[in-house]
Amino acid sequence: MEHVAIIVTDMDETIQYYSDMFGFKVRLRGSSKTREMAFLYLEEQPSVEIELIRDINPISDYNKSGIVNHLAFTVKDINEAINYYKKKGIKFLSPEPQPTLEGGRMILFYGPSDELLQLVERVKL
């Protein structure tokens, strides 16, 4: 995967959120007359980025669920991750992690622009 694009409502707030919560850094940020954009990356995985887009004057409403359903982050221990992110103010959509198809566990929550995010603990082999 190269990148995932997310429509955001507040660029500064969103960059701060992804930096504070997950350790993302800004690779590139700029704007035109119609759009503000930023590309975020993780030092451990620089080839995969999150593209943030804020349309200055949107030409239409965006679909709430969007075409991209969610953005997932792998964690080593989901219970540890849940406790960590709860302390940072994240409210999860379920009280407990749910099973994944492959036998791991996952939990969902919303980011600052209501983008759907997921933590995934893979099956330990």
Rank of each mutant, 00 (worst) to 15 (best):
M1A: 11
E2F: 10
H3R: 08
V4Q: 07
V4N: 08
A5C: 14
A5H: 10
A5D: 03
I7M: 14
I7Y: 15
V8E: 15
T9S: 14
D10P: 13
M11T: 14
D12C: 08
D12F: 10
D12T: 12
T14S: 15
I15T: 09
I15F: 04
Q16D: 13
G23E: 02
G23P: 00
G23V: 01
F24N: 02
K25D: 04
R27L: 05
R27E: 11
R27T: 01
R29W: 03
G30R: 11
S31L: 06
S32W: 02
K33D: 15
E36I: 11
L42P: 02
L42M: 09
E44F: 00
E44Q: 07
Q45H: 11
S47K: 08
V48M: 05
V48C: 07
E49N: 07
E51Q: 08
L52E: 08
I53P: 08
R54M: 15
R54P: 09
R54S: 13
I56T: 10
I59M: 09
I59V: 04
S60K: 15
S60N: 10
S60H: 10
D61W: 09
N63D: 12
K64T: 12
G66T: 02
G66P: 05
I67S: 02
I67G: 04
I67R: 03
H70L: 08
A72V: 01
V75D: 04
D77W: 02
I78S: 06
E80N: 03
A81I: 00
S94A: 15
P95I: 03
E96M: 10
E96W: 07
P97T: 08
P97S: 03
P97H: 12
P97K: 09
P97I: 11
Q98Y: 13
Q98H: 13
T100V: 05
G104C: 06
R105K: 14
R105G: 02
R105F: 13
I107T: 09
L108K: 15
L108E: 07
Y110S: 08
G111W: 12
P112L: 13
P112D: 09
P112T: 13
S113D: 11
L119V: 01
E121T: 05
V123N: 06
K124E: 14
